[in-house]
Simulated assay, not measured.
Amino acid sequence: MGLEEDFLLADADDEKTIEFIKNYLPQELKEKFSDDELYYFLDLIDEYYSESGILDAQPDADGYVDIDLEEVVAYIVKEAKKDEMGEYDPEEVLFVVQGEMEYGNSLGQVD
């Protein structure tokens, strides 16, 4: 598979993830975040996973890797402020992170 095809598949998966997250969000947050913000959050979630060592962590006896969603949220809020994307309420961003995690669960990627 070529690099261009990889990018197209990643874009399609991101679109599906964003749609899932938008459906996952509580009603009062559905209009709160733009698609661009959600894509930005997804990028930061991926960045957090790759920089934190989570992807290299060994699963426990049941096959699970413990991911502290509050740490992921704190990373997003900190980076968004640093990148001058805005200041976000951690409680609201937590729903986005949970939605991304649930999407992975629905694909069987994460338990």
Rank of each mutant, 00 (worst) to 15 (best):
I67N: 04
G2E: 11
L29Y: 11
L25W: 13
Y64S: 12
D43N: 13
L25I: 07
G99D: 02
E79D: 05
K22M: 13
V93N: 05
K78C: 14
Y39E: 00
G2I: 10
E51G: 11
A74S: 12
D11T: 03
L42D: 01
E91K: 10
P26F: 05
Q27K: 10
E15Y: 01
V77H: 03
D36P: 06
E51Q: 15
E79V: 10
D43W: 14
L8P: 00
E102M: 15
Y75D: 05
G108T: 03
V96W: 07
L38S: 04
A74Q: 12
V110D: 01
I54Q: 01
A12R: 10
G108M: 05
L42P: 00
F7L: 15
Y48M: 04
V96Q: 04
G53P: 05
Y39F: 14
V97L: 04
S34P: 06
P26E: 01
D89W: 01
N105K: 12
G63P: 08
I21Q: 06
E15A: 08
I67M: 09
M85W: 11
V65K: 01
Y40V: 09
A57C: 11
S50L: 13
V110P: 00
V65H: 03
I18M: 07
K16G: 15
L69P: 00
G104V: 07
A74K: 07
V65W: 04
F7C: 10
K82M: 13
A74C: 01
I18Q: 06
E31M: 08
I18W: 06
L38C: 06
K16V: 15
M1C: 11
Y40P: 00
I21F: 08
Q27F: 01
K22R: 13
Y24M: 09
G104F: 13
E71R: 09
D89F: 02
D36A: 14
D60N: 11
E4W: 09
G53C: 05
E19M: 00
M85T: 07
L69G: 00
